[in-house]
Simulated assay, not measured.
Amino acid sequence: MMIETNSYKDDDLLELLKKIWNGKLIILFVVLFMMLCSLIYIKSSHQKWVSTRVVTTIEQTKINEIRYDIIDNSDYFYNNLMFDNYLLPATFLNLYINEFNDEKNKTTFNNQHQIKLNNIDTLAVKKISNISYLLTNSSSSKQKNITILNDYDKYINKVSREKWIANLKGMIKNNIIDLSYNLKAEKVIEKTKIKLAIKNTENALKIANIEGVSSPIPDIDSTNVIYPISLGSKILSKKLAILKALDKDKPNNIAIDKSTYKLDELKNIKLDNITLPSYFEFINSNNIESHVEGPKKTLIIVLFVFIGLILGSAIVLIKSKYEKYHD
């Protein structure tokens, strides 16, 4: 019984294959038609080129060249930790990448550039390591990619130079504001100390006059006493005169002198002289590499041929069944 069943199945399979073989011309026609469709699709589709460039941090020697030019503007920049942080290779690279990714810069570049960006044109950044990034652009043209990456690199270097200088000038201006505030506070504190000393000395002088202590009392240390009457009224009077004279003058001490000198240094910096040369680049960059990413021609043709085989076989079987029904 099982042998008969298998025999029927084999007969059905042979019959099916025979029908498909008899309709081979139809199947071939459908396959050729689908191949033609695949070629038309490939021709009408935009070819997608992807171009990449690896950028890394610049050498410290290049930074030192501009460092000396900026330091010449003021002694303030010597041994200044905050300024040194502005001159780290990683600082320049991170600023460049941030500006590269900024949508406003892309829009401005797009408006100024003769080659307009469109839906299949993309500028992107991928982090490779702490000191390197992969810049990518994709479009329908290899040359277009190269042109855009090169021109955008020049544009971003220009924007980065302007941003770096603006940040440095902003740091100096903020330091001036902070130092001015701190200097004012130091002067207020010094004035308060003098006024407190005047008040204590006046009280001590009153007590000394009441007690009749005109000369210093020997063997008594009044250094840490609030009202040092042991100094005697004569010395207290001289001390009071000196304190009142100090109160009339501008407050002064070593800390105030240092802060005043530092503030004068900052104010004397000529901000317009702080520049970066136009040739200075924020990153090191490798040559641009390009490759085609799509459409995948071979895969598309194979897929269309496969669809043609299925579709052609279906047409042959339907045609055979239709003819058998009418017979």
Score class of each variant (00 low, 15 high):
Met2Pro: 00
Met2Asn: 05
Leu25Cys: 07
Gln112Glu: 11
Ile226Leu: 15
Pro228Asp: 14
Ile165Trp: 11
Glu202Leu: 15
Met2Gln: 03
Leu311Gly: 09
Ile148Met: 05
Arg53Ser: 14
Val188Asn: 13
Ala245Asp: 04
Trp164Met: 08
Gly23Val: 13
Trp164Gln: 06
Ile226Lys: 06
Leu236Val: 12
Arg67Cys: 12
Ser7Ala: 15
Ile58Tyr: 03
Thr107Phe: 05
Asp327Leu: 12
Lys296Arg: 15
Ile131Thr: 07
Asn182Cys: 05
Ala208Ile: 02
Asp12Met: 00
Lys324Leu: 13
Val125Met: 13
Lys258Glu: 11
Glu202Asn: 14
Leu205Met: 09
Tyr181Met: 11
Cys37Thr: 09
Glu15Arg: 03
Asn79Met: 02
Lys244Asp: 13
Lys199Leu: 10
Lys9Asn: 12
Glu289Trp: 06
Pro295Leu: 05
Phe83Glu: 00
Glu186Pro: 06
Ile301Asp: 00
Asn80Met: 14
Phe100Gln: 09
Glu293Gly: 00
Val292Gly: 03
Lys173Pro: 01
Ile207Ser: 14
Asn224Asp: 07
Leu123His: 06
Gln143Val: 13
Leu87Asn: 01
Ser141Ile: 10
Leu25His: 03
Lys195Gln: 10
Ile226Pro: 02
Val31Asn: 09
Asp153Ile: 07
Asn101Ser: 13
Asp151Gly: 09
Asp327His: 03
Ser320Gly: 10
Ser233Asn: 08
His46Tyr: 07
Ala197Asp: 09
Asn174Lys: 01
Ile3Glu: 05
Lys144Gly: 02
Leu263Ala: 01
Glu15Gly: 06
Val302Met: 15
Ile283Asp: 03
Ser259Arg: 05
Ser313Tyr: 07
Lys104Tyr: 00
Val316Pro: 00
Gln47Trp: 04
Phe306Ser: 12
Leu28Gln: 09
Ile318Arg: 00
Ile226Tyr: 07
Glu65Gln: 10
Asn101Leu: 07
Tyr41Ser: 08
Lys62Pro: 06
Leu266Val: 02
Lys24Asn: 15
Gln114Met: 10
Ile189Val: 13
Asn118Glu: 15
Val50Trp: 00
Ile274Pro: 00
Ile220Glu: 05
Lys104Ala: 02
Lys48Glu: 15
Pro228Thr: 09
Thr56Pro: 01
Ser44Pro: 02
Gly212Phe: 08
Lys191Thr: 07
Ile172Thr: 06
Lys297Val: 11
Ser51Met: 01
Asn64Lys: 10
His113Cys: 14
Val188Gln: 10
Tyr181Arg: 14
Leu246Ala: 06
Gly170Asn: 04
Lys48Trp: 03
Tyr181Thr: 12
